[in-house]
Nucleic acid binder design. Structure first.
Lengths: 195, 195, 195, 195
DNA sequence: GATGAATGAGTCTTCATTCAT
DNA sequence: CATGAATGAAGACTCATTCAT
């Protein structure tokens, strides 16, 4: 579905993307019907299928954009930092901020991981994110700044901490992202025992 | 429900629970139909509704049993250990083993968390698990064995590490649970920097 | 289904008949399931089909008994009265009393009339009742006590008055049966204009 | 519902309403399935739910339209008449004509009264009709044209006569509405004794 | 570009009835 | 007599998708 769109067309498409994101996050992907989306926007069904081939494609599109956005933000934040450990720290903090700013998309990520159907689409992007982190960890290990352990596992452990803390403390309990990020950083760097 | 069941009835019920668990884990909850379940078992559709009020109730039942089983296993493993930090460590190792033994149920947990509809049912059990961990963390902090930080956040951070590592390394990549547990334990205790 | 029943069997049958009457009247015939009936009585499904061939037969049975009871009562009340007009009056009063004493059965009558399936069964009994009234009307007309009009129509008109007044004033509004009967009698005898 | 309908849409809706009226009257409400209705019209199942939220809503709609039609007709017939007693007479005659012209709808009325679920919907309209009659009766009583009795009961008595006579003599036996109306009028005005 | 209308396979659920024990 | 289990057709309703206008 690579249609050439007028300005107005682009806006319609965006409306659909945004409104669907909100409904999917609130209701779940399966329980949200195409009818619900177009009715919410006050347009006919045809509109939906003019911009997207299917409900599934729409969802994949949302996911793709979100991943791209998150990665862009992370790379911008990191590019001026040299130290590998600092890069990891910045990565964690940026994730938390993004999670705070994009609660709905974050929710969709969590859904997509658990759904056979979308996991692959997500995986591509996630692997990219993880491989960035892995690279920094490898540098740090080579440097002696990080203890010698499987960098892949370390990267996923960090990811697990971020995802869980963001969803429980930022989204559910409304804790300030910076505070959650502080804990996440120190936990990831030093564990529970501390130095 | 709460029907008086004969021996045969109990077995049927178990069959439904087990088969549904497998289908839900493989296909997802929404995409798996009641028809698929009863056909897979070669029984009439009425059988399903003899044992469960709805597809939803069946799923909730699966979740409830799984949580009870995990918790039982964890408490048995912990009861002979006194030291708070060791209890946390044992908790992590037991979780990994359980995850390895119950891949399907683990998958359903991950789905249920991300689904508004079931999150509450899960929450009850999860809160219990977390509150156990929180208690040990509080003891350890009071003891000076663990650094002074919000025990609630620490508990969720540990949970995030477990869940993520189990699903990626144990289930997807088939790494030995003990190895994953080793990394999880050291990460949770010492972070990436090490002592 | 003409089974020879023990004493206990007769009681069971009665229980089923009575409980079903109440459920049918409260919920409607179609919306009331056999399951609801047997569960309400705390017995197995087999019990139902031991005593009745089908839900339909049970309902027909209820109707039959009710009609027989009403007719019996009416004839007992009338037998000592000679005057035709008085017999009609007594008939009206007895109907009102019976309606007051048997609200559920009365409701089932009204349902059965409006249901293709049961109307015939009801018709037989109703025709009997009407033909009693018609006979008295014919006598009264021959006697010059009642004006010359189609006795059949007069009988149905009287029936309509009884049914409607009983259901609205006795059942819905709880007016005393004797008061409703007074109005019904004077209306049927003299209309709204009065003598 | 309240959908914006094109001309074609309005026609479809009408088709559904009309066909369903006929089926409900012939088969009963519960025994008539949505499938039967759409198949009878040769359309897909979705069509039904495009125009109505549920089978129940459709039925309520039929009832509502019918009541409005009957009332409209009655008021048109009455408006040029001043005398209260004449108004009642005209009311009776109009009802009989309407019943003759709308046998199916009349049948549905009778069903709806006897069904807990729809009685309320009907009640509203019926109360309106009754209250019209009550008003005329009160006028006539005040005027000394009608004997002093509870006008509410009188109105329901008249209603009972109409309903019963129409269904037995007009619908079942095919008697001419005018003849039935004559009897109904004289019965309601003078009872069986006559002046 | 957009709309209302239509499709029809598929969903969950119910229920009268039968049957082995 | 009675029970719990099972059947499976049928019911109401949903929904992604297509299409004529």
């Amino acid at each position: 579905m690579a249609r050439r769109l007028t300005q107005r067309g682009k806006e319609r498409r965006r409306q659909l993307l945004d409104f669907a994101t909100e409904r999917f996050a609130a209701n779940g992907y399966h329980p949200t019907s195409v009818a619900e989306i177009v009715e919410g926007l006050g347009v006919g069904k045809g509109v939906f299928y003019w911009y997207f081939d299917s409900k599934e494609e729409l969802f994949a599109e949302i996911l793709k954009e979100a991943q791209a956005d998150l990665r862009r933000r992370q790379q911008e934040a990191i590019e001026s930092v040299d130290d590998a450990v600092s890069r990891i720290e910045i990565g964690i903090r940026t994730s938390m901020e993004w999670a705070a700013d994009n609660e709905d998309l974050f929710t969709l990520f969590r859904f997509a991981i658990s759904e056979e159907e979308f996991a692959p689409a997500l995986r591509a992007g996630a692997d990219l994110a993880v491989s960035d982190a892995v690279r920094h960890l490898e540098d740090a290990i080579a440097n002696g700044d990080v203890r010698d352990a499987d960098p892949d596992m370390l990267a996923y452990a960090i990811l697990g901490v971020n995802i869980h803390l963001a969803s429980v403390f930022i989204h559910e309990r409304g804790v300030a992202p910076a505070d959650v990020a502080d804990l996440a950083v120190s936990f990831c760097l030093e564990g529970i025992l501390g130095r």
